[in-house]
Design a protein around this nucleic acid. Structure first.
Lengths: 366, 366
DNA sequence: ATGAAAGCGCTAACAT
DNA sequence: ATGTTAGCGCTTTCAT
């Protein structure tokens, strides 16, 4: 196939029209409005197009003219590989992609170079709207998106005046989980969380860092925990919270180790994601701690793997979240905006939570 | 934030220029060539832009003028959800996304409605090139992509004259694996494979269906197996090959069951993907068959999960494959095209392959 | 059923 | 350092 011939666009709609001795309108109609054309002429147009190697109307020119790009932009968290390895992000992506596919819209992943603060890609994206998923509150890319005159939907981020959004009630969900642990009797806990800000901090996160966290989801989950435990008289400032920049089971394990080493009296490890919790589970096993008899461990998200091992966690409908974001963006924009969708979560009891052992039991067995 | 004001583009580069009493070139330069402008004037331009709510140059118009869309199109397998759940496809996607990100290019997922044969989306995509990943040979979308006058890279598909491609040597890799089993003594085998064509066939796949399979990867893997086993005198037509349309562990399990039920003498199950093999493993366990003592099971891909359970398989560098596709497409197009990249695979011995038990051992134990 | 005219909003030579 | 001139390739009223 002599594709090299096509490297430079060989023909345009205009040149085709000239060749055929018809107007450009007619050629355009041949492609876009077959009914506006005698079948005979249409065949001739298409035939000549093939002969001249005319590939059909240029999409970009068409977009300029129609003011429709036919694509949705997606702004993902700083680190792309992170998103592809996080089941929650992946589920969201799949849901959004499904929604776009259903509407015949492309999904344009905006290239965000984590190194440079290069917002140009946001301005360069030819899209009809944006979805922004879980980026830090102060991310300049988010600001860039909001400056573009197209509809935008944000997901898993704090509400922004005038912008549609979709998410879950992270705070309430985790508060509910915390209450279960409290009811079981846990008071001495350790917390493992994901990155709270764009600067790397693999270690303890003091309260002020928690409260000023740039990642909405993590901030909200932590404050939800704080609220629950303070209700029963636990001083939140005394609760060790360990942060990990990278989101992996290995990090969950090391964080769990750090907590267990720092305080042997801890009876429960609350993790703000299932991935981290699975790592904590591994660390417990490594130490010969039985879960849940010796140690309670909980997660968040409800990923498949977690369900398989019976992790006590909260399931959130990630696929639905992505679909909802897509629908919000693509639905015939009623003038009732902004709209806000909060999806339901579900507590999964699992088998990794139980009452804490008393100190006596620790020494003398149950 | 009064974003609704922006719903209709309020200002253009031209109107801004008029307002400022400068030429459009100057405004354009303020955005694209800061050095061509006195800092003072530039500040004035940007300032006025903000005041007028001018969001910067329209990306589509710019693309039309510069003939650069700043994005790469990706044509994925028929079913999108499939791609998001297949670790191999996902790895490819991640690698490609990484390459695009590195080059500052967007990644435009082309919406392919599995129902309709709607090729329009391919023509509508404003991209500078395409990557086509593992679609059926006769997919009309592939033809549509090739008809567009932009560079294209195909992955995991048969070579097309004049088109860059990237892949692995599926045939050789699986032949090598087959030879290991042959050396171990296996002659009576069963094969589990993924969908071979676009029509659903959950059951045995006769040789002619295998050979006319529309999915290159599956076709090649099967013929690689046939080659190896025919070498040692096994009549391939007598080897049961079971096909499954959906790609999941559950399907792998049911396919394994079908094979085991149809021939109790089978000593090894060769699966053309790890996902299927994991299902086969589960089915063996369910039946109380010990692997590998009672039954040898092998996979293909080298996904994390497979490695964790010690599956005997072939690892392919999926992430690298995606990166390579991106590089091929984005590299300063040397005129040495077409180029073809074949990545190396690696046999992973694992612990799920062993010599077959003799009939006597079957009855009387080892 | 077909054509003429008028841009969509921008950038890139080429002046000055 | 700034302006002039010419389109990029297409669709869309509005005529005929």
């Amino acid at each position: 196939m002599a594709r090299s011939i096509h490297v430079r666009r060989p023909a345009t709609l205009a040149s085709l029209a000239a060749e055929l001795g018809v107007s450009r309108t007619t050629v355009s109609n041949a492609y876009n409005r077959p009914d506006q054309l005698s079948p005979e002429l249409r065949r001739r147009v298409l035939e000549t197009a093939r002969r001249l190697g005319y590939p059909g109307p240029d999409p970009v020119a068409r977009s300029l003219r129609t003011r429709k790009a036919g694509a949705v932009g997606l702004l993902l968290t700083e680190n792309l590989s992170y998103a592809f390895r996080d089941p929650a992000a992946l589920g969201f992506l799949e849901g959004l992609a499904l929604a776009c596919e259903g509407a015949g819209q492309g999904l344009h992943l905006v290239p965000v170079n984590p190194e440079r603060e290069d917002v140009a890609a946001v301005h360069r994206a030819g899209v009809d709207g944006f979805v922004v998923y879980s980026v830090p509150d102060d991310d300049p890319h988010l600001a860039a998106v909001l400056s573009r005159p197209v509809p935008t939907v944000i997901a898993d981020q704090p509400h922004i005046e005038g912008v549609d959004c979709v998410g879950i009630d992270d705070g309430t969900a985790i508060t509910e989980l915390a209450k279960k642990l409290i009811t079981l009797g846990h008071r001495r806990i350790g917390v493992v969380c994901m990155r709270l800000a764009r600067d790397r901090n693999d270690g303890f996160a003091p309260v002020e860092r928690q409260q000023s966290a740039h990642f909405h989801v993590q901030r909200t989950r932590l404050s939800g925990l704080a609220k629950a435990f303070e209700t029963v008289g636990v001083d939140w400032a005394s609760v060790p919270v360990v942060e990990r920049f990278d989101h992996s089971s290995a990090m969950g394990a090391s964080a769990a180790a750090q907590l267990l080493d720092s305080d042997s009296q801890i009876t429960a490890l609350i993790c703000t994601s299932d991935i981290l919790a699975l790592g904590a589970l591994a660390e417990a096993k490594r130490r010969g701690l039985r879960v849940p008899q010796d140690l309670t461990i909980t997660g968040f998200d409800g990923i498949v793997e977690a369900e398989r091992v019976g992790l006590t966690t909260v399931r959130q409908p990630v696929l639905e979240k992505g679909k909802a974001a897509g629908r919000l963006l693509l639905s015939p924009s009623e003038r009732t905006r902004p709209r806000s969708i909060t999806l339901e979560t579900e507590f999964l009891p699992g088998i990794t939570a139980a009452p804490p052992r008393t100190t006596e039991e620790r020494w003398f067995g149950p």
